[in-house]
Amino acid sequence: MDIIVENLTKKFGTQRAVDNVSFKVKTGEVLGFLGPNGAGKTTTMRAITTFLTPNEGTIKFGNLSIYDHPDEIKKHIGYLPENNPLYQDMPVIDYLRFCARLQGIKKSKIKSKILKMVDLCGLEGEKHKKIGELSKGYQQRVGLAQALIHDPEVLIFDEPTAGLDPNQIVEIRKLIKKIGKEKTVILSSHILAEVEATCDRIMIINKGKIVADGTSDELRKHTQGKEILKITIEDGEKNEIFKALQKINSVEVVDFIDKNLNSFEIQSKPEMSSKKAIFKMCIEKAWTLTELTPFETKLEDVFRELTMN
């Protein structure tokens, strides 16, 4: 089920939390929302889940609009809200049964569905405990279980791995990747590595507007105009190497990283590569090239560049 968001605007008072945002998510796609605090991630997700009514714009699930068919749409959504609110005084099993009933799962199937979720989310040992007695990580699993219990076509996770330990994070990411193959998934996070690891597509939001949209490679290219290399050359005199490097046509800037080790940082001119030329130069002068590493632009840098003013 595709999600189509058109010109979504949500105001709180005079502040525009989400400002004229349009995007589309296809079935089988995992979309990651990135953005600093207060960028409008949660508001956008709340509008998609019908929790908040937009001031302007429409949201469609396939052909269904949230204004005309909210009840129909809600059946297809599995939602894990921010901070994972749950009924603390309810036992896990009872809570899952309550959710299954609300989702209209047939009576005969409720039990097997609950057991499947308990198994999938690793809640076997905790299923009879009250939710309030569980650790944060286990509560997060209960939140995931309630979102997945009716096998929804659309999954919306607001910071799904908050409060989990590293092992659990890896598990949840795997789970999301697995689910994401057949379903439409939108997740938000401010952990960049997480978005990079789980999402097919990344959208960066800042101050209610989309500032970047694409795969993580595309986003990197977006800011990475110039090639940056780190090289180390042995058996040569450092000043001589420095001058020789500067003479290469494609090289724009040469800088010492460590004078004692003869390592340099080389920035090439836009859209040019100096790797071959450096290698050839070393052969000609009989220097030993011991290191040549391209610096990758990190998603962190992209993020910082786009969201800092």
Partner: peptide
């Protein structure tokens, strides 16, 4: 905040 989960159910 459980109201959020409740009203986003069918």
């Amino acid at each position: 905040g459980t109201i959020e989960l409740l009203v986003t159910k069918p």
